[in-house]
Design a protein around this nucleic acid. Structure first.
Lengths: 396, 396
DNA sequence: AGACCATAATCTAAGCCTCGAAGAAAGTCA
DNA sequence: TGACTTTCTTCGAGGCTTAGATTATGGTCT
């Protein structure tokens, strides 16, 4: 099953343009010659296509490289100023809005504090909309140059134009964030789970770079994740795949805030770890408290590593990934000191040949990559459409 | 990342031919007109392509349908006798070799008993090779018409021309089954895990038909599975993905024969269920013994359902499937009576909106579909290549 | 029966696309 | 300055799909 397939001869062009643009985006500056080798397209085709893209200003020249006694190669790269993407991170304590150029350099930021436990959807939407206007103004960019707005939220996002968000942590049951935002902006909109956006950031620019099959596990206060299959974020039938936090590790075990029992998140977010250690800490102090636990060598930490290993071994058998990236602030804290133990604990739960310990690595982007990842939601269709301007407004 | 992309204008034709052939293969007989609507290709293109395919005998006419006062539609279908596929099921007690035409009708069979616990690789290979020759002879098919041989084996298959098989149940450490078979036949060869082949059979012809995102869980003596993403079997980086049997459900729980603890298979194959119930039964009696347990209403059965629900809820959160198919003889036996309980137990471990109870269904093909599925490994490249004859011998 | 209509399939001309080969551009080296 | 090397562009050829016109094949109405 699974009919994909190009249709007409013009789709061919579009597809090849996308291949070219991706090579240029991820492969940095390159000459036409190198592009021909990388993409498999003939030099002639590359030439006409780069001609078009240059004329449209999607790409620009980026210097020369002389070769041994021949015509020097002209380097090409994606024009960072061709378009801009807004990335939004809707977090527990604040709404962060950032404007990126195509190089993913931040051109402007706006942060809005949100009082914990008071995540009024309308307020959040207003913060986002205000923020979008603010960064566009501050970045001195015309609205026409903005390719879209990507939003990373906690919880599960239902596909569809309304982008219904269900986030227990916020008490959001079925908040139509997409509809709320669309009422205030005409920009293309992409809403997805924050862990997934962060995962895509690691995939594109971090430790996942270059892999086709990867699992990204993110531990902060809770546990989230992202699954990469065939080089793309896997979302499943209803955008809810990859919820690593609700992988069960102990049938009938600790109660999770999701209502079920034995979830990874019932043991392994910073919140759960502190709770298991009997430490009381509000969300602002979690980081310090967890650091202290690590310092003390609390037995709860050792236990946590073992449980993480159990979860990861499940993931290895299900996904057989080429790489497993551990990220999120708590994940980086744990993994920074105990990576070897995590690898060993995972190996104990897996047969030898689908798993190599080196498969597990730490994330490289730090815990603030949610907005960056949200911006990649905007870039993705830009690359696929190869700069076919501002298509229909869609929800990823 | 993930560059796929057609390249030349002839690839376009090949791709569209594949789309057409798939539509015809899975959509049964259809007129050119219907094909045009289904594939999105213009009537003219369909016309020339069906012309080619008819000339090559890949497809044939299949009657007419008169329409409301117009020229009657000529129905087309894949020519079942265009080519044949051999499917092999290497099981615990026997090696089954079957010859299928493109309609997946069995044209010949050959079975070879294997004494339990004595799975000499060379002997198995010899059985397979003998069987292939036997079914080709019995089916009265010329070897040139055979598109390939698909083999389903227990354990994990490593990609590569040797197709190294690791199967603890057989005591196979790294058996180069591909190499052994290639020494005896020149036919294209495809080796994969038997649960995966069975899963693909359910996907193509059984309860998974038409789904793009599915999980297939197979319970026999042990537990296996297959994952479907975007309409295709997902194999991961090293063909080892989808090993549902080694999903962990209880950290530090019962020892599994794989060496780890807490695997689903340590609780849920027929073998494990009987063991947990304290019943001693050798593999020939397992079926009767399990049936008795069910009849008696043993508490172990109720427990098993709960544990299965835990495992399935993990799978729901990780894959967000459109459908979950339960198969294998033990799975069908349990599910036949207790499907409602399984659904309830799964729902208890999942949030409401990624999961609908009706997602879980029983397999439709019965427990003997391994060989059928193995044959689909041969059909798949035939459909993709759209009958571009006998390409290079590959391992799937 | 014959004129007319409806639907299916094929034919034809036009517009794109990618490729290979040949030519132009832009340097180095002696 | 001229030979050489390497990169990039231009051009003709061969293919592809499409829209629209044309042919095929039956029913329906008078």
């Amino acid at each position: 099953m699974g009919t994909s397939g190009r249709r007409t001869v013009r789709d061919l062009r579009r597809g090849n343009r996308a291949v070219l643009l991706r090579a240029l985006y991820f492969g940095g500056p390159a000459s036409r010659n190198e592009l021909s080798a990388e993409t498999g397209l003939s030099a002639a085709t590359i030439s006409t296509m780069t001609g078009d893209l240059l004329a449209e200003q999607v790409i620009v020249e980026a210097g020369q490289v002389d070769s041994d006694g021949g015509r020097p190669r002209v380097l090409l790269k994606v024009n960072p100023a061709y378009g801009y993407a807004v990335g939004v991170d809707v977090g527990e304590t604040q709404v962060k809005v950032e404007l990126f150029d195509l190089d993913m350099t931040v051109r402007a930021r706006a942060h809005y504090a949100v009082r914990s436990a008071k995540h009024d959807p309308e307020l959040v939407a207003r913060h986002i909309l205000t923020g979008v206007d603010a960064v566009i103004a501050e970045g001195e960019v015309s609205a026409g140059q903005v390719l879209g707005v990507g939003v990373g939220v906690p919880g599960i996002v239902e596909p569809g134009p309304d982008a219904l968000v269900r986030a227990k942590t916020f008490g959001w049951e079925a908040v139509p964030l997409g509809a709320l935002l669309r009422a205030g902006t005409g920009l293309p909109l992409f809403v997805d789970n924050g862990a997934k956006t962060m995962g895509q950031a690691e995939l594109w620019f971090g430790s996942g770079k270059g892999t086709r099959d990867a699992v990204i596990v993110l531990m902060g206060s809770g546990v989230g994740g992202a699954i990469v299959t065939d080089g793309h974020l896997y979302r499943g039938a209803g955008m809810a795949a990859g919820e690593v936090g609700h992988l069960k590790i102990i049938a009938g075990g600790r109660a999770c805030r999701c209502g079920a029992r034995g979830c990874l998140e019932a043991y392994l977010g910073a919140e759960a770890i502190l709770d298991r250690a009997g430490v009381v800490a509000d969300s602002a102090d979690e980081e310090a408290a967890l650091a202290r636990l690590l310092e003390e060598g609390s037995p709860v930490i050792g236990e946590s590593v073992e449980l993480l290993g159990v979860g990861l071994s499940s993931l290895v058998h299900l996904f057989n990934p080429e790489r497993i990236v551990i990220g999120g602030w708590a994940g980086l804290m744990l993994g920074g000191r105990l990576l070897a133990d995590i690898r060993r604990a995972t190996a104990a739960g897996t047969q030898a040949q689908p798993f190599q310990p080196e498969t597990i690595v730490l994330g490289r982007l730090g815990p603030d990559a949610v907005a960056l990842g949200a911006a990649t939601l905007v870039i993705e269709p830009f690359l696929t459409g190869a700069g076919a301007h501002r298509s229909v407004t869609t929800i990823a």
